[in-house]
Design a protein around this nucleic acid. Structure first.
Lengths: 192, 192
DNA sequence: AAGTTCATGTAAGCAGTTACATGATTCC
DNA sequence: GGAATCATGTAACTGCTTACATGAACTT
């Protein structure tokens, strides 16, 4: 007897969020949660297949086996009503403070140990990385912007739009911060 | 014979970064990497003590035992020259794209499944959380700003300042984004 | 014929959390 | 006398990564 209020992992809710938008097989879930734009969550197939089985056992998703579709019998997963309810409850549930763990900032925190020229070069590389992610987000947003669903809070495209907007804003801010850091290094050089 | 080029974990470099600034015992390291402002990396003591032993075995740190100082013999750790070199090499080393895993955005990506009123309430809670972190960052920055070291790229306070500046910018952007989201929900409500 | 994509799994190991364990000093 | 802080560890478990394993369909 599956417990409908079963505690599900963050990965579980990521998968439920995907399946609430449309039914998928495990392979498609893995594709959409892969590098580099994984809708702000990433996971590998080796984590996804067992999690789908757990969600299935908990009654949060269900699957039908499609025999002729692919190279081997494919499991097409769909979210259940119990799953929809669990997802909605999680979305508006309590916020626990997330542990902060940012490799990029961790490096910068020790940047005083290297020569200023090498430091500026690192900042430039960070800048390039942020720019390329920003460009991908802008493309994604442009792709969905034509759809009127993006204005309707009960449409998944509305949520896609606001999360992409957040990604774009944060990457733009990161780029400005990088430019500011380079200016700070230049100003220090000037003072020498 | 410890390998000086030994691959160290991210946690190891976080600890080395801390010890490069000043010598600490394990307890102090744990305090400074604890909730909520852990210089952009967090870890618990149960992870820190074994890692310090590994760093010690690799020759990246060394320790002296202080008998009379605390309730029991305390180990005071200091970074070695090998450790300094390993840290500096890591700082300017290759950037691998970080796996994106943001719980907050993951929730918002499924926000279309809940009623708009509940959604707006969630955004307000996110906003409050960002504001309180921003305030702490501003306090931290104010505390160090008086020191002339913050202008010198080879001074640890310079690095503290630029990382805090990044945190402040990103939290301000998050707050603007929250306000924008509330406005989007309000606009949709208007159109109904 | 070889390589890529579709498709689903398992196993070993590292990273991180939670809980267990101990004990002295300091503050109320 | 009891609670909080200082101080250092270990054990069990969850989450995630890397690698192993298989095999059909499609593409070059």
């Amino acid at each position: 007897m599956p417990d409908p209020a079963a505690a599900t992992s963050n990965l579980g809710f990521a998968i439920l969020g995907l399946l609430a938008r449309r039914a998928c097989n495990g392979y498609e879930v893995a594709q959409r949660m892969r590098q580099p734009i994984g809708y702000f969550w990433t996971a590998r197939h080796s984590q996804i297949y067992p999690e789908l089985n757990r969600l299935d056992a908990s009654g949060l998703v269900e699957h039908e086996v499609i025999e002729g579709a692919g190279p081997r019998p494919t499991k097409r997963y769909r979210i259940t009503e119990t799953g929809q309810a669990a997802l909605a409850a999680w979305v508006v549930g309590d916020l626990e403070p997330q542990p902060v763990r940012d490799l990029e900032v961790l490096r910068l925190w020790s940047i005083w140990t290297v020569a200023p020229a090498a430091a500026v070069e690192l900042v430039s590389r960070l800048e390039a990385a942020h720019r390329s992610v920003l460009d991908r987000y802008l493309d994604e947003l442009a792709e969905i912007s034509g759809d009127p669903g993006v204005r309707d809070p009960s449409n998944p495209l509305f949520a896609s739009r606001i999360t992409l907007e957040g990604g774009i804003r944060s990457r733009r801010t990161a780029l400005e911060w990088c430019a500011w850091m380079r200016a700070e290094f230049a100003a220090a050089e000037q003072r020498r």
